[in-house]
Measured scan of single mutants.
Amino acid sequence: MDGTRTSLDIEEYSDTEVQKNQVLTLEEWQDKWVNGKTAFHQEQGHQLLKKHLDTFLKGKSGLRVFFPLCGKAVEMKWFADRGHSVVGVEISELGIQEFFTEQNLSYSEEPITEIPGTKVFKSSSGNISLYCCSIFDLPRTNIGKFDMIWDRGALVAINPGDRKCYADTMFSLLGKKFQYLLCVLSYDPTKHPGPPFYVPHAEIERLFGKICNIRCLEKVDAFEERHKSWGIDCLFEKLYLLTEK
């Protein structure tokens, strides 16, 4: 054995408090879109979701699917093309516009009456609605409950000090017999300040354990050449399924 860690023996890093005071403002996230600093976007979609999607959907149609901090995630069109209703929230209007443009979807925009100064973008087909606002303002819009949440790049982007508020927001959107698919990253948080932030299993239990059954479905090596600039040499991604207790 050469000592290389595999996707099945990932350790939890003990120094989980080192990132707790890290803060990125909404304006800084918007600047990332304006300046093209969106390496977190996956042009081909998320491979773990693609692998498990049909198993999760079980042939159902007409589900309501929520994408927190959606950006221009191509997976939104995957669900819409399968007959589901997609709702996303994203602070960057540019990111939302790029989604519709890159997916060749016509759309309209209208003000969100409950949140002055914000807009919702709706596909002409009517099954994709993307709200351009802070996720913490979203419950004011009465958008209803969801059958499924796809959380990739959301919890790991939320400032650590806001995670409890974020989890409570997610709980307010969950319908009966929900499936909450959650991706988190595992790396040494003493070497990279984030975002994306390190979210250990214990944190998921703390945030969601009282209401959800929590199961880790898969762990994969997600390290890429660009991650060397973070000062790390190891990065794993974990896919969790959260269901109603």
Rank of each mutant, 00 (worst) to 15 (best):
T4K: 10
T4P: 13
R5Q: 08
R5G: 14
T6E: 12
L8G: 11
L8C: 13
L8S: 11
D9F: 10
D9M: 05
I10R: 11
E11G: 08
E11P: 12
E11Y: 13
E12L: 05
Y13S: 13
Y13N: 13
S14T: 07
S14P: 00
S14Q: 03
S14V: 08
T16W: 14
T16L: 12
E17T: 06
V18G: 11
V18Q: 06
V18E: 15
V18L: 12
V23S: 12
V23F: 11
L24M: 14
L24R: 13
T25R: 10
T25D: 13
L26V: 06
E27I: 11
E27N: 11
E28N: 04
E28W: 11
E28C: 14
W29A: 06
D31W: 05
D31V: 10
K32Y: 12
V34A: 13
N35K: 06
N35T: 13
N35G: 11
G36M: 12
G36T: 12
K37M: 14
T38K: 09
T38L: 11
A39T: 13
A39V: 08
F40P: 06
F40K: 05
H41W: 13
H41V: 10
Q42L: 14
Q42W: 08
E43H: 01
E43T: 03
Q44K: 05
G45L: 14
G45N: 05
H46M: 09
L48E: 06
L49A: 04
K50H: 01
K50M: 12
K50I: 04
K50F: 05
H52M: 02
L53S: 09
L53Q: 05
D54E: 04
T55K: 11
T55N: 08
T55C: 09
K58Y: 10
G59T: 09
K60Q: 13
K60A: 08
K60L: 09
G62M: 13
G62T: 13
G62D: 04
G62K: 11
G62N: 15
L63C: 04
L63E: 05
R64P: 01
V65A: 06
V65K: 00
F66K: 01
F66A: 02
F66V: 01
F67S: 01
P68Q: 00
P68F: 00
L69N: 09
L69G: 04
G71A: 05
K72C: 03
V74I: 15
V74A: 05
V74C: 08
V74M: 06
E75S: 05
E75G: 04
M76K: 01
M76N: 01
K77E: 03
K77V: 11
W78I: 02
W78S: 06
F79I: 08
F79Y: 06
G83Q: 03
H84W: 05
S85F: 12
S85I: 12
V86C: 05
V86P: 01
G88L: 00
V89A: 12
V89Q: 05
E90N: 08
I91M: 05
I91S: 08
I91H: 06
S92P: 02
S92G: 05
S92K: 05
E93S: 13
L94N: 14
L94D: 04
L94Y: 12
Q97V: 13
E98P: 01
E98V: 03
E98S: 09
F99M: 05
F99E: 00
T101I: 13
Q103I: 11
Q103V: 09
N104T: 03
L105K: 02
S106M: 06
Y107A: 03
Y107M: 09
S108C: 05
S108W: 11
E109R: 13
E109T: 10
I112E: 02
T113F: 03
T113S: 14
E114L: 07
P116H: 11
T118V: 13
T118M: 08
F121C: 14
S125C: 13
S129R: 09
L130D: 00
C132R: 12
C132L: 06
C132S: 09
C133L: 10
C133H: 01
S134H: 08
I135M: 11
I135Q: 01
I135T: 02
I135V: 08
L138K: 01
R140T: 09
T141L: 11
T141R: 08
T141A: 08
I143S: 02
I143Y: 02
K145I: 12
K145Q: 09
M148S: 03
M148A: 10
M148F: 11
M148I: 07
I149K: 00
W150P: 01
D151S: 01
R152C: 14
R152L: 03
G153C: 05
G153Q: 03
G153N: 12
A154Y: 02
L155W: 04
I158M: 05
I158R: 01
N159K: 05
P160L: 03
G161R: 12
G161C: 04
D162S: 13
R163V: 03
R163G: 00
K164N: 15
K164S: 08
K164L: 13
K164M: 13
Y166Q: 01
A167D: 00
A167T: 07
A167Y: 04
D168G: 13
D168P: 07
D168S: 15
D168E: 14
T169C: 09
T169K: 05
M170G: 01
M170P: 01
M170E: 00
F171W: 13
F171V: 10
L173Q: 04
L174Q: 00
L174P: 00
G175C: 03
G175W: 09
G175N: 10
K176D: 15
K176V: 14
Y180E: 00
C183H: 08
C183V: 08
V184G: 05
V184Q: 09
L185V: 12
L185G: 04
L185Q: 11
Y187W: 05
Y187A: 04
Y187K: 04
Y187L: 06
D188T: 05
D188V: 02
P189L: 04
T190E: 13
T190Y: 10
T190G: 10
K191Q: 11
K191A: 09
H192T: 05
P193S: 12
P193Q: 15
P195E: 07
F197E: 04
V199M: 03
P200C: 14
H201R: 12
A202W: 11
A202E: 15
A202P: 14
A202I: 03
E203Q: 10
R206Y: 15
R206V: 07
F208K: 06
G209M: 15
K210L: 14
K210H: 15
I211P: 08
C212P: 03
N213L: 02
I214Y: 00
I214V: 10
E218N: 08
E218L: 07
E218C: 14
D221N: 10
A222P: 10
F223W: 10
E224C: 15
E224W: 07
E224T: 11
E225P: 10
R226S: 11
H227D: 03
K228H: 15
S229W: 11
W230P: 04
G231P: 07
D233K: 04
L235G: 09
E237A: 04
K238V: 12
L241S: 10
L242Q: 00
T243F: 13
T243P: 01
E244T: 11
E244G: 11
K245N: 12
